[in-house]
Design a protein around this nucleic acid. Sequence first.
DNA 1: GTCTATAAACCGATAGAC
DNA 2: GTCTATCGGTTTATAGAC
Lengths: 211, 211
Amino acid sequence: MARKTGSHSDITGPRVRAAALKLFAAHGFAAVSMRQIAAEVGVQAGALYLYTPDKQSLLFDLMRDHMQDVLNAWAAEEKPEGPVKELEAFSRFHIRFHLGRPEEVFISYMELRNLEPDNFEALGAMRRTYEGVLEDILTRGQDEGLFDVDDVKLTTLALIAMLNGVTSWYKPDGRLSLARVEAIYSDMAGKSVRMPRWKERQRKAEATQIA
Amino acid sequence: MARKTGSHSDITGPRVRAAALKLFAAHGFAAVSMRQIAAEVGVQAGALYLYTPDKQSLLFDLMRDHMQDVLNAWAAEEKPEGPVKELEAFSRFHIRFHLGRPEEVFISYMELRNLEPDNFEALGAMRRTYEGVLEDILTRGQDEGLFDVDDVKLTTLALIAMLNGVTSWYKPDGRLSLARVEAIYSDMAGKSVRMPRWKERQRKAEATQIA
DNA sequence: GTCTATAAACCGATAGAC
DNA sequence: GTCTATCGGTTTATAGAC
């Protein structure tokens, strides 16, 4: 050890991002100073500007990369067939992915207001793309008579809020396993939108009667 | 007008709190300076300290009073009979109350980490008391065979997260009326925990068979 | 009750030595 | 690639005039 000055390489860039991630998540973007980030990395404040043009970029890069990771990960998921199973897959994916990146998730919805207008808009577009995935599942399920959803857009937001909530209390070594949490949440999500059996029977009966 | 100095009374205290509420909600506690608050009130920074000992107290008082308002308002609500109707009443109350105080709500769950340890603990206790209301409804519904809840504590948090989510997108003059939003959310909440009819019939059939 | 002035510390970002 | 030093500006909070 005993690195004082002139020390080199050791991929400091990623370590700066990691420090910013940790500190922004813990104390909030506005409450964290560049000096604190530098101290976490083990470097002086001035050296940070070799790896980021400014503090704002540090925040935006973290948020943009996280959203891109989510979109890529969902794209790479194997999709089951039919809206019911798709909704379960989406719920489980969302829970699993978000619980694996608690700090990125926390920052991504707590620090939106600290983004400059252009960055805010760019991130909003990515978020809407992700919401569109769920909205699409609900729309198809509704069209096929499998779901009983009053308002697709509102329901999309309600479900995502519910699923996001998990990040605010889940602890990996807590009372409930990840698998159990996934199961409970996806079950709740499914029940909250699925067409009840009695209603479905009634619907089919009416269709037969008319025909 | 033309008030410069020596001006008096005019209940400045509440106006300081109102300014802090507005600015903290818009930009975040850490990002707002005492000078900005003073400017919003129309006074110099030094004068604020006649109404609050420091910036932290300004934040804590807003959050504590809000939580107390929620608890008082629920206590004053007329309660219907039976867990099913109670859950609906709670859902509707929660939506209605929180949409009426968007700034207090926003601050109360965004600024928790900016509270000093003692204040954080005090607010956590109040929050847990409120969660206990819903937890109690779910527990009784479960005991009476009306709900089919896997884990009461987890479900409590999931439902509150879903209901809270409404505050992040609802606009009073938006596409959906408050009454409609209340109805959709309370319906989703109910469906996500209620015992399905077929399962209830099965349960009763088994009970009869055994007897 | 409000003002002005100020203390003491900290901020983001840059310049230049090594 | 990192350091030290620094610029110009901000912060919370207090002291004392009016």
